[in-house]
């Protein structure tokens, strides 16, 4: 899986594609950790191109959220598809990782 990265100044958008799982989640999580270390702790993960997420993908998002919050930032997710929303809801993780409809909405206030 590839992901695009867009530094919009006030926040960084990461755009993973395809399956967000055991194979593809670790590189994205590593990138989030690097961004947070560089002081870019406001991150939007744009999930519009992700068609499947598994528990490892969720773990990367939760881990990224924790890292960002510890540095006074946040990680928000945008444009999640049905499967992603279903899994977030099933695990109740939508309570701490609430999906925004668009990147524009997610970045609100940044």
């Amino acid at each position: 899986m590839f992901y695009e990265e867009k530094d919009a100044g006030g926040y960084v958008a990461l755009v993973p594609e395809g399956k967000f799982n055991l194979v593809s989640a670790p590189p994205l999580k590593a990138r989030i950790d690097d961004l947070v270390r560089e002081g870019k702790a406001r991150i939007v993960v744009d999930l519009s191109a992700v068609d499947f997420i598994d528990s490892s993908g969720l773990g990367a998002l939760i881990g990224g959220l924790k890292a960002a919050r510890q540095q006074g930032g946040d990680l928000r997710i945008a444009a999640a598809g049905d499967q992603v929303k279903a899994v977030l809801k099933l695990t109740n993780l939508d309570r701490i990782l609430s999906p925004y409809a668009t990147v524009e909405e997610a970045r609100h206030g940044w």
């Binding site: 924790k66 919050r69 701490i96």
Partner: peptide, 11 residues
């Protein structure tokens, strides 16, 4: 079902 989080999130 309940509304609780899994174990091991930071909350």
């Amino acid at each position: 079902i309940q509304e609780y989080l899994p174990l091991g999130t930071f909350i």
